[in-house]
Design a protein around this nucleic acid. Sequence first.
DNA 1: TCTGGGGTCCTAGGACCC
DNA 2: TCTGGGGTCCTAGGACCC
Length: 390
Amino acid sequence: MDAFFASVEQLDHPQWRALPLVVGADPKSGAGRGVVAACSYEARKFGIHSAMPISQAWKRCPDAIFVKPNMGRYAEVSAEVFEIFGRFTDLVEGISIDEAFLDVTGSIALLGDAVTIAREIKSTIRGETGLVASVGVASNKFVAKIASDLDKPDGLVVVEPDEVRAFLNPLPITRLWGVGEKSGAKLLSRGLRTIGDVAAISDIMARSILGDQGLKLVSLARGEDERAVLPHSAVKSIGNEETFSRDVNELEKIKATLLYLSDKVAARLRKKGFEAATMTLKFRNEDFKTITRSATLEAATDLTDDIYAMALELFSRTGWNGRVKIRLLGVTASKLVRKTDSQPTLFVDEARLKQVRTDETVDAIRARFGAGALKRGAVVGGSNKKGYTK
DNA sequence: TCTGGGGTCCTAGGACCC
DNA sequence: TCTGGGGTCCTAGGACCC
C-alpha cells in the first residue's frame, strides 16, 4: 500500500486530501521527539520522508498537517485489504500491516495470468477502499518485492523470468531487501555499488564481507530465491515501549511506566489468548545506549502483577544507579504458548486466583468502556506522560 | 541533526545433557 | 591427568524491516 497511514488519514478526513500530511510523533513546534511514521506524497515534495526526525519534518514544512498514528484504524483497513487478497489466492503471506506476498500460481487457470490478476487486485482495492496499491509481479518473492517498490505510487512492475538479471543488475545495493546502513557501508567500502556488482563476487569474497549472510545475499542478488509463500506465521513476541517526552531519573516515574507497560503487554497477551514464559526489559539511556535484560519463568503467565514483578526485577539487574537519565523503557513478552496448551496450575493459590479475577474484571471493564476506562492508581498518580484521566 | 514503536532473525558464548 | 562431539536452551546485543 502506498503511503499507507497517511492515505488512510486522507481518506477519513477529506479536508486533508491533496495537502502535506505527516503521521508520527507530536512535533511540538519543532521541539518534539520521535520520527515520521508515514507522510503523504504532498509532504514528500518538501523533502519529508519516513523515519526522519519529526523536528526536521517540522522545519521543512511547518504548515503540514501533523497527526498521531491511529493504529487501530489502520489495522481495520488492513483487514479489508487482506480480505481482498484472499479472493485471489489462499497463499497470502503478510509481511507487515500494509504489504503481502501472494502466490497466484494456482489461480492463473481460473483468473487469468499474473499481470491480469495484479491489475484486478489494484482496481479492487481502489474501488472498495479508495486506496492506492503498488504491485510487483515476478517468479520469486525477492524480485517481486523489489519490483513492487520501484514505481510507487500506483505502480505495476512486471519482471519476466528471463529478464531477472537484467532487471536487478543496474539497481543500487540500497534496493536490496535486507541490506541496511551497516551492510550497505561494508559493501560500498569494497567498491560494490549495484546489485550486479554483488551478484558478480565470489562466495569466498561474500563470506569475508558479510559472513553467512553474505552468501545468501549473493544468491538473492543473482535473482535466486526459492523461498515459498507461507501463510499463517505464528506471532513470536508481544511488546510495548515508550520514549519519555524528556529524559527521566525519578524512580516513581520509572516504576509507574514499567507498570503501565507491563499492564499493556499483559492485557494484549490475554486478549490474544497467550501466556508468555520469557520477559525482556529494554532500557535506553540519555546517550542512546540500549541494553536489555531478560529472564525465563518455569510457568508461563499472562497476569499483570507477574509481568510487572519481572519487569522490576529485570530493571534492578540493569545496575541503574540514578545518575544517568533514562530515555526509553520497554517490556516484551516472548516464548509464547496458547493458553489452552499451557500447563495447568499444580495447586490452588488463593492470592493468584485473586489476581486472575482482578485481571478478568479489568479486561471486562475495558472491553465495555474502552481501553482508557481503567488505569492503575500508580500509573495515574505517577504522572504518565499521556496524562490519562479517570 | 537527532534518532518511534511494532516486530523478526541472526550471532555468539556459556550451561547443560547424553 | 587430561579431558570429544553433537545438540538444545538461555541471554545479550545488533541488524534490519515497515
